[in-house]
Write a protein that binds this DNA or RNA. Sequence first.
DNA 1: ACTAGCACTACTATTCTACGAGTGCTAATT
DNA 2: AATTAGCACTCGTAGAATAGTAGTGCTAGT
Lengths: 328, 328
Amino acid sequence: MLTDRQCKILKLIVEKYIKDPVPVGSKTISKTLKCSSATVRNEMMALEESGLLEKTHTSSGRVPSEEGYRYYVDHLMEPKKMSGEDMLKLQTVFHNQQLALSDVIVKSLQVISDMTNYTTVVLGSTSHENLLKQIEVVPIDEGSMIVIVITDRGHVEHKNIRLQDVSMDDVKKTVNLINNLIVGTPIDEVSTKLEYEIKPIIGKYVKQHEQLYNAFYHVFSDFTNQEINVVGKNKFLKQPEFSTVDKIQNVFNKLENPELLHKIEEDDDNNIKVYIGSESKIDDDVTVIKTRFKNGNTEGTLAIIGPKRMEYDRVVSMLEYMKENIER
Amino acid sequence: MLTDRQCKILKLIVEKYIKDPVPVGSKTISKTLKCSSATVRNEMMALEESGLLEKTHTSSGRVPSEEGYRYYVDHLMEPKKMSGEDMLKLQTVFHNQQLALSDVIVKSLQVISDMTNYTTVVLGSTSHENLLKQIEVVPIDEGSMIVIVITDRGHVEHKNIRLQDVSMDDVKKTVNLINNLIVGTPIDEVSTKLEYEIKPIIGKYVKQHEQLYNAFYHVFSDFTNQEINVVGKNKFLKQPEFSTVDKIQNVFNKLENPELLHKIEEDDDNNIKVYIGSESKIDDDVTVIKTRFKNGNTEGTLAIIGPKRMEYDRVVSMLEYMKENIER
DNA sequence: ACTAGCACTACTATTCTACGAGTGCTAATT
DNA sequence: AATTAGCACTCGTAGAATAGTAGTGCTAGT
């Protein structure tokens, strides 16, 4: 258990370090705390022994450890009201009535990314929650057409396909079959339904049924599992802890890996959660702050990803504000 | 005018430097050319005076200048057959009959980007060449719907819109009007046609016509002017000339600027063109190699973007191969 | 016309120095 | 018992000195 003074010192160090990424020395702290640097040093030693602080080398100032940030977020951080300026910028986006919710979300995350210099992510609802609503086929020219797939939650995907020697009539028949028999099925089950319910039928009535079946099969199996929108990846270039090409390459690879990003919403906690460093499952050098949101049948996860040295209070208040505004 | 030997020397220097980005000295050249390093030095001086070579400092080896690369590409480079290995990898993509042309192009550019470590770009046909073919509206839930716009060349865009107190009937009427009156118009003229031909009509017959008009107006004015597909931007992280965060940031900004990328297809030359450094209009440190392609009514531009120190022969042969394969 | 030879230049890597910001520990003070 | 002043010590950083090396331009001789 930490003493009162230790808490104060830890808090000061974390906040100082977040403002300016250089190790914090005892003198700096002793200025704001009315006691000598020697006392602060003793306390710092204790904090280091508890694993909350680290040194970069034997005689350097202290830097918060992962556990230090954790403790700060859990016990020391004061909830901060969003600054009027931040609020204003976001409100102009939210008050645009014309835009659909999903567009509002992306736009506002763009704004947040620009204000904070962190990367933001929206994870849309997963495909097993999306039910097939309708498919449309639009012929483009000889043998080439566009298939458009729409789900009940408003997710749209389209794909250009090419078919040889298949009459438009047969295509239309197949589309009707799908629209009659498979609508309402979760997207990721459509492929199997296609095999067991549609294939046998078109096998009898349609010439070139193999080709037709394959084309539709591909359309659905390529349907992206999850809408992932990463905004402001380049902001990492502005973070001093990612100042070498190696580190950038590493973090970009991770941000482009859908499976990894998917881990953000593994827990289905609805509140705002902070995952620091290794807790994030994405990269030991980043912090992820996330929340789920739900409005009607649009739901998903918002996340802000930045260095561990993140303005936790500011980001948390922004996410709170986002969540509130989205949910009504 | 360059002597025969000067050409040989320039060629050797360019090719050596492309393989390994360190200034080339006279000794290295004299090994492959049967003459002494002193002779080579004299020739190098001449080449430098002609502006084809540069030094990084007074006593360094030589590096090709922009003009040097230019001369190499125009006069010295030998057309190179594509390596069997390169060819094989691309062929598996081209021989996939199921995929539509546009998908084949993107896939193969991905392959090229991975093989070469350069960035690739496809610029699709511009919006004034795309004629409106059809629009569809799919209601999602109370007051929210998806508008899908399809052009005759198979370009599809969709947008979620929200309308208050507008009956689905009125929406359908408007859609029918558009499909009857405006189909066949170039996409970038649709907005004005909407104003002069549709607005007056729905003004009379439809309640909430202002809102409805605005929604559609936005759908069309947001229609992306041009399909731009940048593949493998991150490859710049592997190029030694872009090894600092500053340079990366700069080149990323440029690659994300559609107007700048648009400049690639400003000339409407159908052949393969090489733009080196400042010629590229994109960035003084990159080379752009591009070609137009056309197959039926799918047309556009392919480009490969990398450092000036690019494997010109290899890239040119790849682009030739791409163009040929696309055009039949 | 070519080349051997040489003085010269500038980058690179290594070492040395001085400096400063920080530490831990001890002993004195409150 | 808690605090603090004082001090020796550590380590990173910055700058200067050094030596080595890969290259140059030039001159003079083949």
